[in-house]
């Protein structure tokens, strides 16, 4: 957290966690709608696209938050993202190779499930980088 943000609390609607949370809730809702077979096609498409505006708000508030960070916090976030990016590449490339080597169960290893590991890589990177500078 930056000194600026400590002195002036971020308004709730400008907080990235709020929008990330509602984005996730919209994704869960979309999954529930799309798993129903009785929903018309237009509603299925609307449900699939419902998380997009919330993700856009999460992106905009995250960029704004990054601009308000102090220089060490920016360094920590950069290192966390670098770690998460490399680990995400490794995961996807390894899954691609494993798919060629053996038959993977799509219920366990499809993109519907694997994406959830990406935020974990990022938060793991944040913990590692924060520890390095503390």
């Amino acid at each position: 957290m930056s000194a600026k943000s400590a002195a002036k609390p971020t308004p709730l609607l400008a907080h990235p966690l709020l929008w990330t949370g509602t984005w996730f809730a919209a994704w869960v809702g979309a999954r529930a709608v799309l798993e129903s077979t009785t929903v018309p096609v237009w509603a299925r498409v609307a449900a699939a696209l419902a998380p997009v505006p919330l993700a856009t708000m999460a992106l905009l508030t995250t960029i704004r938050g990054a601009r308000e960070m102090d220089e060490l916090e920016r360094r920590i976030q950069l290192e966390a993202l670098a770690i998460a990016f490399i680990l995400a590449l490794l995961l996807i490339m390894t899954l691609g190779l494993m798919e060629l080597a053996i038959t993977l169960n799509r219920d366990d290893w499809s993109y519907r499930h694997v994406w959830a590991m990406l935020p974990m890589f990022y938060f793991g990177g944040v913990v590692w980088a924060r520890k390095r500078y503390s």
Partner: peptide
Amino acid sequence: ADRLAVSRQTINSIETGKYDPS
């Protein structure tokens, strides 16, 4: 940290030599 408008963690990291300031 308040006087320099940075976080306390930044000051601590500079003092301990873990981070070189811009």
